[in-house]
Amino acid sequence: MGLIHFVLGLTVGSAYVEFIRENFTQLIARLAEHILITAQTVLIAVPIAVSLGILITYNDQAATAVLWLAGIAMTIPSLAAFGLLVPFLGIGSAPVIFTLVLYSQLPVIRNTYVGLTGVEEATKNAGRGLGMTRRQRLQRLQIPMALPIILAGVRNAVVIVVGVTAVGAYIGAGGLGEFIFEGIRQGDTVMIVVATVVVSVLALVVDYGIATVEQLLRLRNGEQIEQRVSTQVIRRAVQ
């Protein structure tokens, strides 16, 4: 039955067009909510995670412990985390953002740590021998070299955040998940398909966008890489 309905919906594309036309303002509003939650999460999570990633390069044991804890945080099911935080933070976006900040830690901390410690020994030695302080080596060598890798971690995190934010609608955080849950509740295929497509496109666009910035950083660092179309276009526009 469902399958028939789905195929029917696809062939009669007008049903989708109509849905989008009727709910356009609301779709945009939900999309904006979704982006806002994502942005808030990133703004809180990235500085924390990058700082932690830098700090743990000073101590191997701390690194193991922090990475392990961040890994454990990832195993908590998102819905469960939301549910457990509701008594403390109420319903809405607060428990969702809190959970998402936790989820974002592992990819960003790990990539920061790997990026910073992955800088070749010879490079660090040369820096030391030329009279750079530890801070200068960090600022001038390690961080710039690790930046594309850190950004790859951020990209990973943001894709997770966009996805899990959709689940957050279940506890009243808003966003595109509202349409998905409403669609499932009402058995409204059109609503489900439109909402999932929009949220997926959002994830893909963010992913692609950050990946492009990552490539630009790599090129600035003198790496030779296969360039995406977007990277080539931006480079041509800048030159």
Binding site: L3, V159, V162, G163, A166, I192, T196, V199, A203, L204
Partner: peptide, 20 residues
């Protein structure tokens, strides 16, 4: 990559109209 980037809830939700 696309399959991984699409949010899990979206994939779950999409299965409903297709497979019930």
């Amino acid at each position: 990559n696309v399959a991984q980037t699409v949010p899990p809830l979206a994939i779950i939700a999409l299965m409903f109209p297709v497979l019930g």
